[in-house]
Design a protein around this nucleic acid. Structure first.
Lengths: 127, 127
DNA sequence: CAGTATCCCTTCCGATACTG
DNA sequence: CAGTATCGGAAGGGATACTG
């Protein structure tokens, strides 16, 4: 990201926003990480159960948007009861190391961040 | 992120959410990238001008939360008119490569994603 | 210059009920 | 089982006016 032309960040030029805004919701990153961890396709209800506190609605919405971006494949079987399986795509996998890096950073630095937050809030109260 | 104990993603255990939720807003990632690119401290209004379409309110809020997390330092000079300068911290810098990776991914794959989105939306209308 | 404070609209998202 | 539809509260965030 170094050495950009004059204003990389501006509204008109920024190539990042349209893509990354998509991950700025509550669940996308988590779902991608989870799908990236699977060696086999995983079913809708399995994902729900694994995350635990995601609503059916939000899981549907999240998976649809990931599917629309080409990060996830949805495969539906004509059975009764229905079975739907989700898999990460190569494009999704190529994203994985980066959010994995983010996640690892979060794990490694969570204590530091929490400490800073606490310190900051007490300092603010004093002022 | 491989080889986690049974349920890394669940509500109670996930160490990621409390940290990464913070970057799930509209501006944090962009501001960190921008600050990471500076070799000198940068002033409030410079940041505003560089981004272009961020409101004063949201820039303040964003910088405060980054400061609270220890990712950014705010230095205020007792002058009139006031001068306030922002710098990224070592902790913030340690995060930089990861969101830089994300940003680079976004740049590289934006065409692919856009194409997938278009394809998906037409396919959906057909159904 | 670098903020606060307020208003208000929009989007997010959970809860619930219903369906092929 | 894997959704869809609808409602309503909560949070996000822009516009504007004001201030040390």
């Amino acid at each position: 990201m170094k050495n950009n032309p004059a204003n990389f960040y501006s509204h008109e030029l920024c190539p990042i926003r349209g893509i990354l805004d998509r991950f700025g919701d509550k669940w996308s990153i988590l779902v991608i990480l989870l799908l990236g961890d699977q060696k086999d396709p995983i079913r809708f209800n399995e994902i729900m159960a694994t995350i635990g506190d995601i609503s059916q609605k939000m899981l549907t919405v999240t998976l649809r948007s990931l599917e629309a971006d080409g990060l996830v494949v949805r495969k539906q079987y004509a059975e009764i009861p229905p079975r739907v399986e989700y898999t990460i795509t190569p494009l999704g996998s190529s994203l994985l190391p980066h959010i994995d890096g983010l996640a690892k950073w979060a794990v490694k630095n969570q204590d530091a961040v929490m400490k800073m937050r606490k310190k900051f809030s007490t300092k603010r109260k004093a002022a």
